[in-house]
Design a protein around this nucleic acid. Sequence first.
DNA 1: ATGATGTTTGTAATCGATTTCATGAAATCG
DNA 2: CGATTTCATGAAATCGATTACAAACATCAT
Lengths: 329, 329
Amino acid sequence: MATIADVADYTGLSRATVSRVINDYPHVSKDKRRLVHEAMKELGYFPNTSARNLRNRRTDLVAVLIPRLTNPFFTLILDGIEKVAEENGFQLIICQTKSSKKKELEFLNLLQTKQVDGVIFTSIENDWEQIQPYTDHGPIILCNEYHHDATVPMVRLNQVQGSYLGTKHLIERGHQRLAYCMGSTSGLSNDRRKGFFQAVNEAGLEVKAEWIFHDTYTMEDGVKTFNKILSLTERPTAIFTGGDEVAAAMVKEAKRNGLDVPGDIAILGFDDQPIASMIEPELTTIYQPGAEIGSRAMTIFIDCLKGKRERVRQSVMELPLSLVIRKST
Amino acid sequence: MATIADVADYTGLSRATVSRVINDYPHVSKDKRRLVHEAMKELGYFPNTSARNLRNRRTDLVAVLIPRLTNPFFTLILDGIEKVAEENGFQLIICQTKSSKKKELEFLNLLQTKQVDGVIFTSIENDWEQIQPYTDHGPIILCNEYHHDATVPMVRLNQVQGSYLGTKHLIERGHQRLAYCMGSTSGLSNDRRKGFFQAVNEAGLEVKAEWIFHDTYTMEDGVKTFNKILSLTERPTAIFTGGDEVAAAMVKEAKRNGLDVPGDIAILGFDDQPIASMIEPELTTIYQPGAEIGSRAMTIFIDCLKGKRERVRQSVMELPLSLVIRKST
DNA sequence: ATGATGTTTGTAATCGATTTCATGAAATCG
DNA sequence: CGATTTCATGAAATCGATTACAAACATCAT
């Protein structure tokens, strides 16, 4: 492969001048500029990125930590990140953590070894205490995650507001007995729970303990939980779910039981995934602007890198969720 | 940041010895080895990747070209690629082409400038003629794509066999009048068409021209096409579709029209996407082993890089599709 | 003791760019 | 016209590692 020295020799100029041409610096005469361009083409020369990175102490590479590539919500975030990255000449390295603490830390090596300029987390497994030391080595942004004591910029979704919105919608449709059905008890769930009860309390409604369900992640879980709800003597007339899959499964199960949705029972999804508009009736659900938080996070990242923004100070940007009213409520 | 020279100074050893310790070479005495490790920890030293890459003439980075990050089939491929990459110490740079010829070529710059060791295409827009020159700069693998005149390894799905399988299944269920409904007229579509007619001809069935539909990509298209089918005087009893979304839309529309699936009309999906098992009735569909071709492609890539395999010779690996029988046929 | 062999370490070249500083030539100014 | 500024170019240092080669020393067989 041809190097800058080859181009210099070929043209009879110095490496410095060739470099100036490559980087389009001023103070190079028209002829030499042309001469160099011709030589580059003639020799099939391309600047070596590793050499440039070494010298420039930058790689224009960003590591994006993502739990699962096959989770559409995270690829949506990735898509948003990519858009801004592409516009600004950054490349992304994908780091699939599979929600493993160990892997997460391993990927942070990329930062220490300067293989990347910085890191964007789209989910975080370790405690902040573990992550904090790495902030010395470059910008770290939390996207779709919130850690109380994190000393970096965070972009998150306002889950409280989102589930408040959805719950209020159910109440406005006249429902008095609401079931709440969630996955884990993570920070995300807590927020949603908070929004749910905020709306419920505001309306002066009561929610019985037996109307609250946890550990409902998959479609199978959804079917099980739905049947539990059916068997209740005082049965809720609306269900707030933690995801569209679960909601879709419930709709399916409701119809199998001869119930009309939303006539007999209303079901609210979460996430506005493709399924939401594919089933009958189409799901009313809550849209999370995944691409949007990705773009925002990347924009903030770039600002940090350019020093336009403090990178080791906590800052929180919160984006609202929105209600997508369809036919299931 | 500390450099190898700092570690050398700190320990009173030479950079060479420190390097030997970093890379775990033999012929370093126990004490010095320990000494160096202590110094590295003490100084917070991490080897600089750009410097190593420059010297080693490798980056352990692979560019993966993908049309859309939000397309689940491609993220499945990506997932397969990632698995093997991770096992072998490679990182992936994602290059979203959005099916643009221009972007595709731009990303190939990464190869010329040695930012990556090679490239895996999961879709290809340009003619091979445009791509061919880049093979000089490192391994290029085609994954999920086939170009007749490409001089590189290709891993592809046997679409002919897949659609033959699906069509045969419809015929075995007793259907005599089959509708065929596809998206574009790309190579992929041609293959599927071939498999379809292979099965149809084998069974001695006739397919009327009016039972063939094109340009059916989205759910809306699916609804439209379905209604066209409904309005036919001699109506097909089974529909072979180009994707699960389209099939799902058709199922929905069939039910809306009071038709029983599969009783009145059978509908076959393609791709086995999550929706397939979420709708009622669950879709019979054709599974494409996306992760599998990804893994295979990455494995081949590594072999090429290590010189274990010719990298500028055409080779084709074909993986079979399989039928997932559910309730819609 | 001698030479052969193996271990441990260091010196210096190298990978391929960018950039500081110096220098001479050309342009501008009073 | 001399002084000053701007332009065009090159020499050489630098970024931070790896490695070929050489040298010093220890080990071992003869």
